[in-house]
Simulated assay, not measured.
Amino acid sequence: MKKYILFDLDGTIIDPKEGITKSVAYALNKFEIKVDNLNELCKFIGPPLKDSFIEYYNFSEDEAEKAIKYYREYFADRGIYENKLYKGFEDILISLKENNKVLIVATSKPTIFATKILENFNLSKYFTFVSGSNFDGSRVRKSEVIQYALEINNIKDLSEVVMIGDRKHDIYGAKEVGLDSIGVLYGYGDYEELYNSGANYIVNSVEELRALIMDI
């Protein structure tokens, strides 16, 4: 049975579409790049921001760093509150805590932002620890975030741990560290992405996720 449950944040616990896409659009506008359809920016949800600016807009390292600063200008004041909790997700957390599971958030989002989002939804009480990235760009890879969470919480038996996320970065990060993983399809990754990245389990909905966690 799994004792330690690691959750990605964006696309797994919350739907961050509005806040992230508006923040990205704000940053791109600083480079005179106009994006009228925010749906085009959903690809930024999940991966590290720097990688996405470089991959999708051919930014240099320096340009990507500047873009992240612009992104945070908007996100810190407004975007951080422009998200929604997935329906029924708090019920999962309640059930897991009642069954003595240890819940941890493992996200590439800066820890301070992740913590504020959880507090905004009154979810902090369910989590033992929040492992995120640093503002200086360190500990941004998902494997690094996961490893940090394991070290701080002194978790030795990896067979007792599972990582849950909606994108390939979550699955690859879990594999690099040696964890089982669950891919969720209600977020921003599709079946092909999660299957090809090697997810041990794939679920369609919050309800399926709840049933699976209680069974493994």
Rank of each mutant, 00 (worst) to 15 (best):
G178K: 08
L38P: 07
I202A: 12
T21L: 08
N39E: 13
P47M: 06
E65S: 11
V145S: 03
C42M: 15
K109W: 04
Y186M: 04
I213V: 12
L158C: 10
S197P: 00
P110L: 01
D215E: 13
A211Q: 11
D62R: 13
P110Q: 04
P110D: 01
E193G: 11
D77I: 12
F127Q: 06
A27V: 08
K109E: 03
I213L: 03
R139W: 06
I104T: 00
E176F: 05
N29T: 14
I117M: 04
T128Q: 13
L6H: 14
V35R: 12
E193D: 07
A76G: 05
G189R: 02
M214L: 15
Q147Y: 11
V161E: 04
I92Q: 01
K69Q: 08
G11F: 09
V145I: 04
I45M: 07
F59W: 04
A64N: 01
P110F: 04
V24Y: 02
N100P: 05
L209M: 07
A106Q: 03
S124E: 10
R210T: 10
I45R: 10
P110E: 00
D77F: 11
G79Y: 00
E208R: 14
G19I: 02
I171T: 09
I13E: 00
S60T: 15
M214H: 15
G46C: 04
L96Y: 05
I54M: 06
K3W: 10
K3Y: 07
Y186R: 04
N154A: 14
N99P: 06
I164Y: 05
V140R: 12
K69C: 04
N153S: 13
F127H: 02
S159W: 01
I5K: 10
G88W: 04
G132Y: 02
D215Q: 14
K142A: 04
K66E: 03
N99K: 14
S95I: 11
T12R: 08
E98N: 15
T107A: 02
Y201T: 07
F113D: 03
L209W: 12
L38C: 08
E207P: 00
Y86C: 12
S138K: 14
A106R: 03
E207S: 15
V102T: 13
S95P: 05
S23N: 10
Y201W: 12
L6A: 09
Y56E: 00
D157A: 09
K168R: 10
D136M: 01
Y57F: 15
E90I: 13
K97I: 00
N134P: 06
A27F: 03
E119W: 00
K97G: 02
K2H: 11
V161T: 06
T21A: 06
M1C: 13
Y186K: 03
